[in-house]
Design a protein around this nucleic acid. Sequence first.
DNA 1: GAATATTACCCACAATTACCCACAATATAT
DNA 2: ATATATTGTGGGTAATTGTGGGTAATATTC
Lengths: 154, 154
Amino acid sequence: MTLNKNTFIGEYSYTIDAKGRINIPSKFRNSLSKDNKSSLVVTRGMDKCVWVYPLIVWKSIEDELRKLSSLSSINRSFIRNTVRHASITKLDKQGRISLNQNLISFSSITKNALIIGMVNKIEIWDPSYLLKIDNNFNDIDSTQFDELSDKIIL
Amino acid sequence: MTLNKNTFIGEYSYTIDAKGRINIPSKFRNSLSKDNKSSLVVTRGMDKCVWVYPLIVWKSIEDELRKLSSLSSINRSFIRNTVRHASITKLDKQGRISLNQNLISFSSITKNALIIGMVNKIEIWDPSYLLKIDNNFNDIDSTQFDELSDKIIL
DNA sequence: GAATATTACCCACAATTACCCACAATATAT
DNA sequence: ATATATTGTGGGTAATTGTGGGTAATATTC
């Protein structure tokens, strides 16, 4: 038995090389459904990290965006900022993708990078930057988790 | 008659070897439902121990996480910190799982380890560390148990 | 057009992980 | 009690994976 297709969990440490290439963990590669044809969509995350979607998952996000009317300016902004930094890429024969300079500098990645499974997508972080976010996490007011506990049972 | 499937009770003492492998008690293995196909998910516990879930149980947690929108930053943090240390693993032919270095050092396990059934999941502890926690348990104000008594009948 | 930079494709190798077998200790059955 | 099966622990070998670099193809600039 395995996880569902296009499902990612766990954390992995990799390096980005001089050509901007970074490995996708083999467990994540094996998790990709065949209809993706090893195509991924990379874009800016909501945090200062890179988001990586299997193509088939990204397409469903596009479908959601189609539903938003462009009559509303907030909708236009949201669509624009969601899509403008996205690009489609393929795994090379060694299982890597290459990130463009825009995404690399946005996420402040220099050499080392953490790749984290986020269930339906993948995040790529600069390790020291993520550490700061972690500290914030510990500072989160517990009332915020109380709200969550109404939505999720662990 | 036996316990329900994927139900674990009791305590067992094992050793972790140089490759990070540790035995799962045969009683626990026999308790696993067949749909797991001997797959388990290991992750950090809320205490300084390792949590082990039958895959089928973990999947239901994942389904809950999928419902949380990534537009909310608290949701992103929650998902990240819940799944980043999780990984799927299988029992080897001898009935062991291997723990990665991250989990081993998190739980301070060196050689000996206690495996404890927690009904729906399994905990793996460093024996001396658990001893400290036990002492704290004895210090708990009995009023805290009074609160629990409203929720559970023993 | 040529010259340069960028991207894609190929191979190589070290390090890690998965898979296999062996054997001693314990438990179960006859 | 003895024999048989199961269980816990260790180690060796083969396959996979992560990382780097070289070369060819494509795109971009002058």
